[in-house]
């Protein structure tokens, strides 16, 4: 299948800050792609480049088969954008904003719009700042979801939503996926990412550090094992890919990388296992490691 988004070696600096420093991102058509990274990693900057709002300093960007800087207006008929900070016009009601944005995108599905307003429990008559932060976001979300477009680009769309609305949001994105549309979803809410995303890209300091399905990523991480053995666990220290080993008499605790799990378990059973618990890595741990790991070796 063709890719909806293809970004290669993207570079963008603001003065002396390198916001993007050789970023790669591939989003296949029809997938929900999670876009993750710590604050200031460059997610919003990437999205702004994809929307033709910022001009890239270098690299190759392909959006829906076109160049987002050159063909901005025509490509924008085929996508909808939910910004991270939603500011509405003081003298326009939420309903007017939804309709206006939909029409400017090239048409809005009235039935779907009304249904979404209902589902998100949005009062479309309020104006500007009389909306709370979450409700302002809902205006942008409804405007985007009501448009009949191939690609949805969302920059932390749910940072202000309550848990009930978060659930509604996840449902609607599932529906979007079932319709075969593509979604690029930047988010700090891991549960949301886990529930929705087919694949994720993790970026840090303007560079992609990991891309793949969540299963792929899990594979790269460690499982925590604690066991009570029949004898003294001598051989474990000699094993590669075992970390944080703690030995207390016949009891052991250690983390092991997924590739060596099999070998480690064989070692344990050879000593004799009385009791064993294993813990798969949580998503938090997974991301935290990617977010905080010290600078990876330079690209050169």
């Amino acid at each position: 299948m063709k890719n909806a988004i293809d970004v290669n070696d993207l570079r963008k600096s603001f003065g002396s800050t390198k916001a993007l420093d050789g970023l790669d991102l591939t989003v296949a058509a029809g997938e929900v792609h999670g876009f993750l990274g710590p604050n200031g990693a460059g997610k919003s900057t990437t999205i702004r480049v994809l929307l033709g709002l910022l001009r890239a300093d270098g690299g190759r960007v392909n959006l829906l088969g076109g160049d987002p800087w050159r063909d901005a207006a025509s490509l924008h008929r085929r996508l909808a954008y939910v910004p991270g900070d939603v500011n509405l016009w003081p003298n326009l009601s939420g309903g007017e904003v939804i309709d206006l944005l939909g029409r400017l995108r090239g048409g809005i599905d009235q039935r779907r719009r009304d249904e979404l307003v209902e589902r998100f429990d949005l009062d479309p008559k309020k104006k500007g700042r009389t909306y709370s932060k979450g409700n302002r976001q809902k205006v942008a979300i409804v405007a985007a979801l009501a448009s009949d477009v191939e690609l949805l680009i969302m920059d932390e769309p749910t940072s202000g939503l309550d848990p009930l609305m978060e659930a509604t949001f996840q449902q609607t994105v599932q529906e979007v996926r079932e319709q075969g549309r593509t979604v690029l979803l930047s988010s700090h809410i891991l549960a949301e990412v886990e529930a929705l995303c087919d694949r994720v890209s993790i970026i840090r300091n303007g560079r992609t550090v990991e891309t793949g399905t969540l299963a792929d990523l899990r594979h790269l991480t460690r499982t925590s094992i604690s066991a009570e053995l029949a004898g003294h666990p001598n051989g474990l220290t000699s094993l590669e890919h075992v970390h944080d080993l703690k030995v207390d008499g016949n009891k052991v605790r250690f983390d092991v990388e997924t590739d060596s799990l099999d070998e480690a378990l064989r070692m344990l059973t050879s000593i004799g296992v009385r009791n064993l618990t294993s813990q798969p890595p949580t998503l938090e741990e997974l991301f935290l490691r990617h977010y905080t790991e010290t600078e990876i070796g330079s690209a050169s």
Binding site: A73, H76, R77, P83, D85, N87, L101, L104, R105, G106
Partner: peptide, 13 residues
Amino acid sequence: ALRVEPLLATSVS
């Protein structure tokens, strides 16, 4: 006020 971005992300040039 960030009110231009959502507009320029539509087919408005």
